[in-house]
Design a protein around this nucleic acid. Structure first.
Lengths: 122, 122
DNA sequence: CTTATATTTCGTCACATAACGAAATGGGAA
DNA sequence: TTCCCATTTCGTTATGTGACGAAATATAAG
């Protein structure tokens, strides 16, 4: 019960759903999610920490960058099934298309260039 | 997307999950849910209105009493699937057992007696 | 019609949450 | 070492949410 509440609370935010959907395409650096969601770095970090507490994502640090990915076999079989239904439906209705296009450009730019553009004053 | 957010927000509250689970056993009067959840009538009414806006429950008025039930084919096929997974898991883990026992007593008492006990000063 | 009563609506309060910027952290780079 | 910079943590603010009681609503009973 407590688990289900944590899951539903984690999923009850548009930006977190968008982040999860983006992570379906593979692991992403925080800065890439910042660019996608167009939010302050601290805000994105908080969202990711909520998703991690809910055990929906894992993270690993590589050099200066922190990468997040969907937790394999998300959390529990039940939660996995919920996410599968969710993503299938979002796919079907095309809600992810715009973000996917956006994310493609972001990934193509490369993390180094992206971070320079995001954080350096120029 | 908007729909999914509404669904997850509606499900992200323990009292609403308990109410939905109780309604799985058949339609219930508001006063029975008040007795189950042990909350103020206005609070329960608000929860039910949230569930109704989310199209998870339907209501009908009969005499003095308002009955709520699970919306058949809850909202959308996708939402139905989510609820099915949720309830199956809650069943499996026994989280509903206590409420079911409680609700049996409440139903057995009968609505008239229950309302007298709940609302009349004595 | 008038009263009683089950439910909803409204107003309010306390608390949770999402947003931001500033400051802290921690791992490369110089 | 010292500096740089991506990320996180912290503090604050604005908004959302759940709780209650009082008042409004609607229907049955008298």
């Amino acid at each position: 019960m407590r688990d289900w509440l944590e899951l539903f609370k984690a999923l009850a935010d548009e930006n977190r759903l968008r982040a999860l959907a983006a992570l379906k395409g593979g692991e992403l650096c925080v800065c890439q999610l910042i660019a996608l969601l167009d939010l302050a770095p601290s805000t994105v970090s908080k969202h990711l920490s909520i998703l991690r507490s809910a055990r929906l994502v894992d993270s690993r640090k590589q050099g200066r960058w922190m990468y997040y990915r969907l937790a394999r076999d998300c959390r529990t079989p039940s939660a996995s099934r919920v996410l599968a239904v969710l993503f299938a439906d979002l796919d079907r209705t095309g809600w992810l298309a715009a973000d996917r296009k956006r994310m493609k450009k972001i990934v193509d730019e490369g993390v180094e260039s992206l971070c320079r553009r995001l954080f350096c004053k120029s």
